[in-house]
């Protein structure tokens, strides 16, 4: 990835010492890391807003959903986070093949989750609690899962980018910020689901067909 010439310029000739490229890269990554975390905090506020809205509107009730499917997609997503972590570790150790393999598995599991929620759970839920327009409860369910699914899709796009760049050999054990960023983003999306899953599937008394 590109190093910032701004940072090079700034630190490049302090005290007349020309730094090596690597130190500048490290500094750049430190900054990018802060940027990513700030972004995640910001996005987290949005998800928190949704989460709180769910309790505000539905209180102690929850939609009647397929428990089995919920458990399966959740496990799939958690597994994907594991492979994401593997991929990152492998590229750190210079194992490009392994990295590519694990990234691919992550993508597959991510897609699995997405298909499970959007193409299986949604029609199923619609038959229990009605479509998004049926009631506040169904609206909340579709909004929360939809917003999360949107993040999953962007995560998958990101994963594809690092996969193809990885195939071109862009990442080295020393330089793979993009992989790290993608991994952290993916874990974040995963953590959000860890909150959403119980809020939608476990907490409260189930109600079918809306309010």
């Amino acid at each position: 990835m590109a190093t910032s010439s701004a940072s090079l310029h700034r630190h490049g000739h302090v005290g007349g010492v020309i730094e090596d490229d690597h130190a500048a890269y490290q500094r750049m990554v430190r900054m990018l890391r802060i940027g990513l975390w700030l972004f995640i905090i910001s996005d987290g506020f949005m998800f928190t807003g949704l989460f709180v809205s769910r309790f505000y509107l539905l209180g102690g009730t929850r939609p009647e959903l397929s428990q089995a499917l919920g458990l399966i997609v959740t496990s799939v997503l958690l597994a994907s986070s594991f492979y994401m972590n593997r991929a990152e570790t492998l590229i750190e150790h210079g194992d490009r093949e392994g990295f590519l393999r694990c990234t691919l598995i992550t993508i597959g599991l991510g897609l699995g989750f997405f298909v499970g929620v959007v193409f299986l759970e949604w029609p199923l839920a619609a038959s229990h609690i009605g479509g998004p327009a049926a009631s506040a409860m169904s609206s909340v369910f579709f909004m929360m899962t939809g917003m999360h699914a949107f993040h999953v899709i962007t995560g998958i796009l990101f994963l594809l980018v690092i996969y193809f760049n990885g195939r071109r050999g862009r990442y080295t054990p020393q330089r793979h910020w993009m992989v790290e960023a993608c991994a952290n983003y993916w874990h974040f999306v995963d953590v959000v689901w860890i909150f959403f899953y119980p809020a939608l599937y476990l907490i409260g008394t189930p109600v079918a067909l809306g309010h």
Partner: peptide, 10 residues
Amino acid sequence: MNFFNPDKGG
């Protein structure tokens, strides 16, 4: 959708 529609639980 019905987040703010009181007739549908909003």
